[in-house]
Design a protein around this nucleic acid. Structure first.
Lengths: 341, 341
DNA sequence: TGGCATATAGTGAACGTTCACCTTTACCTT
DNA sequence: AAGGTAAAGGTGAACGTTCACTATATGCCA
């Protein structure tokens, strides 16, 4: 054993001080910035710290400074798929010198709101980023605790529309498909409890209207592949669409499978688009036209708002485009005989 | 405004005490268990807590008790895909009354080890679950800080093999394929920095040997679809395998695409298996035979080990099978002309 | 009625830091 | 050489809790 087995207690600042022959406050200054100290003093403390294996007790420090350097991200388990969002959030927080705590919640909005408040007031974190909407009635209770930023990304009932729900790629998809000659569309929607699903549906309908296209309907969906298969099965064979805007990649691959069931070729008879750029999309036959969402960027920017709210450093936001359409083999001109509608 | 805007400071235990007309210690007891107090006293404190909107300062409590109720999970960003693992870990920790902090790390093993130690000794967490291997030389420094559990799941250099690296499904896949008549196999490996990739490769080779099969080789890979495409391109057309064991689903879909490029039908000419049960697998043409890994269960059990180490409650471990083979359309008997090898 | 156990409540210190303020020393200015 | 100033370091309190004791009231028994 390298050192004799000392009492299990960790050394404190005072022990370091007495070993170095200075006051505890001098060690505190040393810890804070190493400035305003004589080189000789610095060296003595260095030695003492080394010898004792001293590490500051961040708990005690936090208690005194009322700063924890810790942020919390509250997210519903259903959102947990978006690991890349979390990844972006973590990276930004670390850059700003914060540590992130993940708290997953479940249950009603009221329960979740309570959990967020609890956390904000516990003194354990400087700020809370909630990826779940809060009960509006309760927000006035906030000021006493930590900063709370509610990200609209996973908004459940409010009007605000965040980056993640930005449906503008739907416009790009449809305009380009219309340029190729498509006139008759189908949308297989996502779970309408999600703001993003609602936004895509609304934009789909608006774009149909604006470009004077025809929609054979909006098939209900729940983000599942089955909903895609089912939507195609139910299509009236006398009035088949030539293009399908699916809510996401899984739905889209269901649509492709459904099309195959009915003997329709993709993209020969039917163009299909997805959303999310699942890593398999590139290798599907046909590879899937989809929308790549920069989840890392969205996560980063959400945390940046929070960091700003807790008075942290100003970091460079990610400012690229949120979503980007990636054109692949699953989209092509419509079949000749149906091109004109 | 519901209350007049009091000084921004949060109320303390002493203020509650004086409002309730008891000592601070009595309030502390109230907070701890509400037991051993007169009903009348209980009620008075209840009232005071309510009126002041008091919430205990967990920071201060932790400082005194030397317990934070907080665990940390350290994981390399590359592991971040495994959101479901995290999800299982979080759920278990919450069940045990802990909060989890996610710390992502990068860089060398030495750097990461340092980060884990730092965390363990900071006093900020009760325990650390490291999903990244630690430098062995340094483990003797641990006892002073929090409990550290190193999960072998993402093991990088050590011998121990955890649940996630369990390669036994490879055996099941190959035995069944051999039963169907397959004799000539190919393995497209994953990044050999990963224990799981190494384990699958070793098991593949062992099984080839044990069953007296023929292997046309182990193609190098990096978990990417391209590596799958490339592996098929390089095959000698005079000695094509009839079955491919791909390192994961992405690689497998690359293999399928590569096969198509060469005019090979899957599964008619070539059976292909993946790993991970990506949500798109069911809808691919052909749907992909794969291995579903219960990541939530693995995450749960890893955290359970940690909770046990920090002296937490004994929770029910998840004891189902870790991995399960899911047979789908991409596997079938080999073509007649090559069945016998 | 004295004595003792038990239930309930109070007192002051301690946890390991930083903050606010004070002291000492050295050097410069005039 | 007196006075002033800045640099370096020291002192004690404070952060909000819980711990280890101690004090008081109540009930029971001999």
């Amino acid at each position: 054993m390298p050192e004799n087995s000392a009492p299990t207690r960790r050394p404190t600042i005072k022990e370091v001080a007495s070993l170095a022959g200075v006051s505890h406050q001098t060690v505190s200054r040393y810890l804070k910035s190493r400035q305003g100290l004589l080189p000789a003093t610095l060296e003595r403390i260095d030695g003492a710290v080394e010898e004792l294996g001293y590490r500051p007790n961040l708990m005690a420090r936090s208690m005194r400074t009322r700063r924890t350097g810790r942020l919390a991200v509250v997210m519903p388990v259903t959102t947990f798929n978006h690991a890349r969002l979390l990844s972006g959030a973590l990276a930004a927080a670390h850059e700003a010198g914060h540590v992130v705590e993940i708290v997953s919640v479940d249950g009603s909005t009221a329960t979740r709101t309570e959990r967020v408040l609890e956390l904000a007031q516990s003194g354990q974190v400087d700020g809370v980023l909630s990826l779940t909407p809060m009960a509006a009635s309760i927000e006035h209770r906030l000021p006493k605790g930590a900063a709370v930023v509610v990200s609209p990304e996973f908004d459940d009932a409010m009007r605000s529309v965040g980056d993640l729900t930005d449906p503008s790629p739907v416009i790009e998809l449809m305009e380009r498909l219309a340029d190729l000659g498509h006139r008759r569309f189908l949308h297989v929607a996502g779970d309408q409890d999600f703001a993003s699903a609602r936004a895509r549906k609304v934009t789909y309908l608006e774009t149909i209207e604006r470009l004077g296209l025809e929609s054979v309907g909006v098939a209900p969906g729940d983000w599942s592949g089955e909903s895609g298969v089912e939507a195609v099965r139910r299509l009236d064979s006398h009035r088949l669409p030539t293009a399908v805007i699916a809510a996401n990649d899984v739905v889209a691959s269901g649509v492709v499978r459904g099309a195959r069931e009915r003997g329709l070729d993709v993209p020969g008879d039917l163009s299909v688009t997805g959303w999310d750029d699942n890593e398999l999309c590139r290798f599907l036959p046909p590879s899937l036209t989809t929308v790549r969402v920069n989840l890392e960027g969205v996560g980063r920017n959400a945390v940046l708002r929070l960091i700003k709210a807790v008075g942290g450093p100003e970091l460079e936001p990610w400012s690229g485009s949120v979503a980007q359409v990636i054109w692949r083999e699953s989209t092509a001109p419509p079949p000749r005989d149906r091109a004109a509608g």
